[in-house]
Simulated scan of single mutants.
Amino acid sequence: MTDDAHSDQAFRKLERERVADRIMEDLRDQILRGALPDGSRLPPERDLTERYGVSGATVREAVRALTAMGLISVRHGSGSFVTASADRMIALSIASAIQLKHVGAAEVLDILGTLNAHAAKAAAVHATDEEIAALRAAAERLASIDSVDESVHALKRFLRLLSEISRNALLATLCRFFADLQVELGIAISGGPKLSEWRRVAGALHPERLAVVEAIEARDGDLAADRVTAYHQRALELVTATPHAAEIRISDPGYSHVIAALLSSRPVAGTR
């Protein structure tokens, strides 16, 4: 085969890849604009090849790229479906950064405190009385810890509500990821879902949670932010109280497992 033939093959391959990229970008734009909403079925491959005037191989290449981004899920025998969730996309990005930069567990736990302080300050201004009442009810469910599963569910709900009533959608999405991660890390670091340890951590924080609610009820944003900061500092102290916890980094198998589990389960069902 001549050099010219080799060059021609390379050129055709490059052009095909560029076409696939353009198809991927067009479909991604439709997904992000909502023209192809979350849960909807992607048009069949045959329809896409006709629409774009390309081969099936080029369409499949574009779909593979969207699948790698977490925007499409291919179900063999059923087709391709849109799985574009803001929670999942942010989780993928943040978790990748955590792993790439070898961020420690304590650093991850600290981030949620900063985010929730902003959320609490905004909630004191923007939340309705009904939303604040729901936040108090969520906090009251944690007055006694009788079951790990039930208290984990209640704690995630409290943290999610705290961010959601801020009326800042991006902030709430970031907080949801870190809240779930904080709770799961707390369980992992304490050696597993042991009721006695969970009572020591989650149970001891009940007064701090109520203090946050009271500040938001008083519509005092600065006080609410200060109390959230105090709550998270205390939580960090309790969660990292064991000698092993202070040394946990991304290389720790338990920590890596928590990250992987959150990625595979986003969005987390039943905790909102």
Rank of each mutant, 00 (worst) to 15 (best):
S190M: 14
S147G: 10
L236E: 13
S163M: 00
R41A: 15
L162Q: 13
P253C: 04
D180S: 14
T83G: 02
E247R: 15
H118S: 14
V19Y: 09
S144W: 00
E150R: 06
I187F: 03
N116D: 14
A117Y: 07
I248L: 14
R60T: 03
F177Q: 05
P243D: 10
T67M: 09
D29M: 06
S96G: 12
Y255L: 10
R51K: 11
R141Y: 01
T2E: 10
I165Q: 05
T58W: 02
D47S: 12
R272I: 11
A235H: 04
A269S: 13
V148I: 10
D87L: 11
S93V: 06
S96N: 08
S190L: 12
A246Q: 15
E25R: 15
T114N: 10
A211D: 13
S93H: 07
L159G: 15
I259C: 06
A235E: 05
A134L: 13
E164N: 02
M89H: 09
L262E: 10
G191F: 11
G79I: 05
A260F: 00
I111S: 07
K13W: 01
A106H: 06
P243T: 10
R41L: 10
L142K: 05
S93W: 02
S256N: 11
T83P: 00
T240K: 03
D146P: 00
D29K: 14
L159H: 15
V268S: 10
E131A: 12
S40Q: 07
G221S: 07
L135H: 00
P207W: 01
R176G: 02
A95V: 01
S190N: 11
A137N: 03
A241Y: 00
L181M: 15
D149I: 01
L115R: 09
A20V: 08
V201Y: 07
I165R: 00
A10R: 11
A95P: 02
R75S: 05
T58H: 03
D110W: 08
S93I: 01
Y255G: 03
I111A: 12
D29V: 01
G70I: 09
V82R: 09
L162N: 12
A68M: 13
G79S: 04
R266L: 06
R200H: 15
M89Q: 10
R28W: 06
L142Y: 05
R51M: 01
A169I: 04
D180I: 06
R160W: 08
D129I: 00
I165M: 15
F178W: 10
L159I: 01
V63Y: 02
A119S: 11
T271F: 14
D110Y: 13
V19P: 03
S196I: 14
T128L: 02
R88A: 14
A143F: 01
I145S: 02
I145G: 04
E237M: 00
I165P: 04
R227T: 06
S85H: 09
V239A: 08
I216A: 02
T240C: 12
A261N: 11
A241P: 03
K194L: 13
G79Y: 06
L181P: 11
G104N: 08
A91Q: 03
R22S: 07
R160N: 10
I189S: 08
R16K: 10
